[in-house]
Amino acid sequence: SEEEIREAFRVFDKDGNGYISAADLRHVMTNLGEKLTDEEVDEMIREADIDGDGQVNYEDFVQMMTA
C-alpha cells in the first residue's frame, strides 16, 4: 500500500531530508545485517535513482518498490 511504501521510505531516509543517500542506505542495510561494499551501495543507488541526481527521492523509491 502507499502508506507502507511511505513508511519504508521514512526508515531509509535517516536524516528526514526527503532523499535516501548512499549513507542512509548503507546504514539501513548494515542494521539488517547486510555487509555491503561501497561499490555495492553505490550500484543500488544508481539503479534506484531514476532522475539521475545521485540520491533516491520519494518518487524514485515508489517506482523501485512497485516495479
Rank of each mutant, 00 (worst) to 15 (best):
Glu40Cys: 13
Glu43Thr: 13
Lys35Ala: 09
Arg10Phe: 03
Asp13Trp: 02
Thr30Ser: 14
Gly16Ile: 02
Leu25Gln: 00
Asn17Glu: 04
Asp60Glu: 12
Val62Thr: 03
Arg26Pro: 03
Ile45Leu: 12
Glu47Phe: 15
Val11Gly: 04
Glu4His: 09
Leu32Val: 05
Tyr58Gly: 01
Glu7Ile: 05
Met64Asn: 05
Ala67Met: 07
Phe12Arg: 03
Ile45Pro: 00
Leu36Lys: 06
Ala23Thr: 10
Ile45Val: 05
Ile50Trp: 09
Glu39Met: 09
Arg26Tyr: 07
Gly54Cys: 10
Thr66Glu: 04
Asp42Leu: 12
Asp38Leu: 11
Gly18Ala: 01
Ile50Thr: 12
Arg10His: 04
Met65Gly: 01
Gly33Ser: 12
Ile5Arg: 03
Glu4Thr: 09
Asp38Gln: 12
Lys14Asp: 04
Arg10Met: 07
Ala67Asp: 08
Asp13Ala: 02
Arg26Phe: 06
Asp49Arg: 15
Arg6Ala: 02
His27Leu: 14
Ala67His: 14
Gly52Pro: 13
Gly33Asp: 10
Glu3Val: 08
Thr66His: 10
Asp53Trp: 10
Val41Ala: 04
Met29Glu: 00
Leu32Arg: 04
Ala48Phe: 12
Met29Asn: 02
Leu25Thr: 02
Leu25Ala: 13
Gly16Phe: 04
Ala48Lys: 07
Asn31Asp: 05
Glu2Leu: 14
Phe12Tyr: 09
Glu2Arg: 09
Gly18Asn: 03
Ser1Ala: 07
Val11Leu: 12
Val62Leu: 15
Arg6Asp: 01
Ala8Val: 04
Gly52Ala: 13
Arg26Gln: 06
Leu25Trp: 04
Phe9Cys: 06
Val28Tyr: 02
Val62Arg: 04
Asp49Tyr: 11
Ala67Gln: 13
Thr66Tyr: 06
Ile45Phe: 11
Arg46Met: 07
Asp49Gln: 14
Glu47Trp: 15
Asn31Glu: 11
Val28Arg: 00
Ile5Glu: 00
Glu39Leu: 09
Asp60Met: 15
Glu39Trp: 12
Asn57Ile: 05
Gly52Gln: 11
Lys14Val: 10
Ile20Asp: 00
Glu43Gln: 14
Lys14Glu: 05
Thr30Arg: 15
Leu36Glu: 02
Arg6Ser: 02
Val11Phe: 10
Met44Lys: 04
Val41Met: 13
Lys14Trp: 09
Glu39Ile: 10
Gln63Arg: 15
Ala48Ser: 08
Arg6Trp: 07
Val28Trp: 03
Met44Cys: 08
Thr37Lys: 06
Gly16Thr: 03
Thr66Trp: 06
Thr30Gly: 08
Glu40Val: 09
Asp51Thr: 11
Ala22Asp: 04
Lys35Trp: 13
Gly16Pro: 00
Arg26Ile: 09
Asp15Gln: 11
Asn57Ser: 13
Met44Thr: 02
Arg46Leu: 06
Glu3Ala: 11
Tyr58Arg: 01
Glu47Val: 15
Val62Gly: 01
Glu39Val: 08
Leu32Ile: 09
Glu47Asp: 11
Val28Gln: 01
Asn31Ser: 14
Gly18Tyr: 02
Val41Gln: 03
Gly54Tyr: 05
Thr30Val: 11
Asp42Gly: 07
Leu25Cys: 04
Val41Pro: 01
Met64Pro: 01
Thr37His: 04
Phe9Thr: 00
Met29Asp: 00
Gly18Ile: 01
Phe61Asp: 00
Asp38Cys: 07
Glu39Cys: 13
Asp42Ile: 12
Asp13Tyr: 01
Leu32Gln: 03
Gln55Leu: 13
Phe12Cys: 04
Arg6Phe: 05
Asp49Glu: 12
Asp51Leu: 08
Gln63Ile: 09
Met44Ile: 08
Arg46Glu: 05
Phe61Gln: 00
Glu39Phe: 12
Phe12Pro: 00
Ile50Ser: 08
Ile50Phe: 07
Ser1Pro: 06
Glu39Asn: 07
Glu40Lys: 11
Ser1Lys: 12
Met44Val: 04
Val11Tyr: 07
Phe12Thr: 01
Gly16Asn: 09
Gln63Glu: 05
Leu25Asp: 00
Thr37Trp: 05
Asn57Met: 11
Leu36Thr: 04
Glu3Lys: 09
Ser21Tyr: 06
Ser21Asp: 06
Arg26Val: 10
Asp42Val: 07
Glu34Cys: 15
Gly18His: 02
Val41Asp: 01
Asp38Tyr: 08
Asp38Trp: 11
Met44Arg: 05
Asp15His: 08
Glu43Asp: 10
Leu25Phe: 13
Asn31Ala: 14
Arg10Gly: 03
Arg46Ala: 08
Ser21Gly: 04
Arg26Ser: 03
Ala22Met: 13
Glu7Met: 11
Asn31Cys: 13
Arg6His: 03
Val62Glu: 02
Asp24Tyr: 05
Leu32Phe: 10
Gly18Ser: 03
Leu36Met: 10
Asp13Ser: 02
Lys35Phe: 11
Lys35Leu: 10
Val41Phe: 14
Gly54Arg: 04
Asp51Tyr: 09
Met64Cys: 14
Asp13Arg: 00
Val56Glu: 00
Thr66Cys: 09
Thr37Cys: 05
Gly52Arg: 11
Tyr19Cys: 04
Asp53Met: 13
Asp15Pro: 03
Arg46Ser: 07
Tyr19Leu: 07
Arg26Leu: 06
Gly52Asp: 13
Ile5Cys: 04
Glu34Asp: 12
Gly52Trp: 09
Asn57His: 13
Asp42Pro: 01
Glu40His: 07
Asp51Arg: 13
Asn31Val: 14
Gly18Pro: 00
Arg6Pro: 00
Thr66Val: 12
Ile20Val: 06
Glu40Tyr: 07
Gly54His: 05
Phe61Gly: 00
Gly33His: 11
Glu4Pro: 03
Asp42Lys: 06
Ala23Val: 10
Glu7Arg: 12
Met65Lys: 02
Ile45Lys: 02
Asp60Gln: 14
Glu2Ile: 14
Gln63Met: 10
Leu32Met: 08
Gly18Lys: 02
Val56Leu: 08
Gly54Thr: 05
Gln55Pro: 04
Asn17Phe: 07
Gly33Gln: 09
Lys14Tyr: 13
Glu39Ser: 09
Asn17Gln: 06
Leu36Tyr: 14
Phe12Gln: 02
Thr66Lys: 11
Glu7Leu: 10
Gln63Pro: 03
Ile5Lys: 02
Val62Ser: 02
Arg26Ala: 04
Asp13Gly: 01
Gly18Thr: 01
Val62Lys: 04
Met44Ser: 02
Thr30Ala: 14
Asn17Lys: 09
Gln63Val: 08
Ala23Ile: 07
Arg26Asp: 01
Asn17Tyr: 06
Phe12Met: 05
Glu2Met: 13
Gly18Gln: 01
Ala8Asp: 01
Glu59His: 08
Tyr19Asn: 03
Asn31Gln: 13
Gln63Lys: 14
Met65Phe: 08
Phe12Ala: 03
Ile20Lys: 00
Glu47Ala: 15
Lys35Ile: 11
Phe61Pro: 00
Val11Met: 12
Phe12His: 05
Tyr58Cys: 02
Ala67Phe: 02
Ile50Gly: 07
Ser1Thr: 13
Thr66Asp: 03
Val62Asn: 01
Val56Asn: 00
Ala8Gln: 08
Leu25Tyr: 02
Phe12Asp: 00
Asp60Tyr: 15
Asp49Ala: 11
Ile20Ala: 01
Asp15Cys: 07
Phe9Gln: 00
Val28Ser: 01
Glu40Thr: 07
Glu4Leu: 09
Lys35Ser: 09
Ser21Thr: 09
Arg10Pro: 00
Ile20His: 00
Ser21Met: 08
Gly54Asn: 06
